[in-house]
Design a protein around this nucleic acid. Structure first.
Lengths: 195, 195
DNA sequence: AGTTGACATTCTGTATACAGAATGTCAATC
DNA sequence: GATTGACATTCTGTATACAGAATGTCAACT
């Protein structure tokens, strides 16, 4: 089996995760990945077209994972405001943890990255519409109360997500980020609590 | 008069503003600035130490102007929530207009810029403490209600400013930014309205 | 005095060369 | 069929050279 050997594929991705985190994409060689995963370099090319392909696969996995976590949070029982809060926290914290885990962690989710920018952008868009859908639930007629303001569901989702983006500054500690995120989300979705 | 010729100095800064906006710092030469301001290149060095000095002077002026505008907005009559909103809008819109005015507009306020990063960072810090002071007015004992949340005045200011930062994305139109900014600020400072 | 032409110096971009590293492929091997 | 050693090719980083541009200074000029 060439394209379906999940074990081998997973082993390669695991090795790549370790190495990309430690050295970054540029300074990690296929030889490194081969050694780390206990395969020959040539074998890597049976599972992935090239190094960029491995990187994109990792970026894609990461986004899928965090989107799935967010979706799960939204699907839980409970008031909408709380579910929104948990969804945003799940997604953001997953990303922040990885970004802070190593000096190269943010590469995988960089919207401006040559290799995975499209993946990140697309995931962002999916997350936006996921949240917009949740906001829309609160008010079927298209207008949503976000705190005191009154905007469309999509606008509400965009304002929420882009505000959160601002909190993700380099240099801000994870703990501080977590607190601010909680405060911000609580404030923004406060108006939804009553529904 | 060498260091006090305001007219000449202003003429140079005006020319530099035009040219830096059109070509950026790197691609603007002292010869360009001299021609544009109707002076000889050597004369420029009587007013400024070098090209970097001109750039920093512009960046500094910009920050001073927008901080002054924000401070004026805070000093107005009216409810605290409204004054905060106007202050943030004044500061942010001034910056966004310039950033969008030309492809090189954001250079002057880039916190990571080699030449003016410190100026931008310092201005940001001053703005934060300015807002923190305003928040503190609302509640003398250090804890501030920001929407539903309860945080210190400084934390409230930081959350507000960093959220706004997230709205300043490249590609977002000025009109959209203005609307989102208004909505966000309204929501965040809503809890202060009653005071 | 203020101003500037002209000079020496530094900076920038381009071209070339080259060695070692890294990549991607395929024929040979297990 | 799965795997890989070995090869041809491409990429990267470094060194050198050089011309034109740009910078910063100062003596000469008004």
């Amino acid at each position: 089996m060439v394209t379906r050997d999940v074990t081998t594929r997973t082993r390669i991705l695991g090795a790549a995760t370790t190495l990309f985190a430690r050295y970054g994409f540029k300074r990690t060689t296929m030889e490194d990945i081969a050694t780390e995963s206990g395969l020959s370099r040539a074998s890597l090319y049976l599972q992935f077209r090239n190094k960029e392909d491995i990187f994109r696969a990792l970026a894609s996995d990461l986004q899928e994972q965090s989107l799935a976590a967010a979706e799960a949070a939204l699907a839980e029982e409970g008031p909408l405001a709380e579910r929104l809060q948990r969804a945003v926290e799940a997604k953001s914290l997953r990303m922040m943890e990885i970004a802070h885990g190593s000096p190269h962690g943010s590469e995988l989710m960089d919207e401006n990255h040559r290799l995975c920018g499209d993946v990140a952008t697309q995931a962002e868009a999916r997350f936006t519409s996921m949240l917009a859908g949740a906001f829309a639930e609160a008010d079927g007629v298209g207008e949503v109360r976000l705190g005191d303001a009154c905007v469309t569901a999509t606008e509400a989702a965009e304002i929420l997500l882009q505000s959160v983006t601002g909190l993700k500054r380099p240099g801000v500690e994870l703990k501080v980020f977590r607190e601010r995120l909680a405060a911000l989300v609580r404030v923004l979705v406060a108006g939804l609590g009553a529904r």
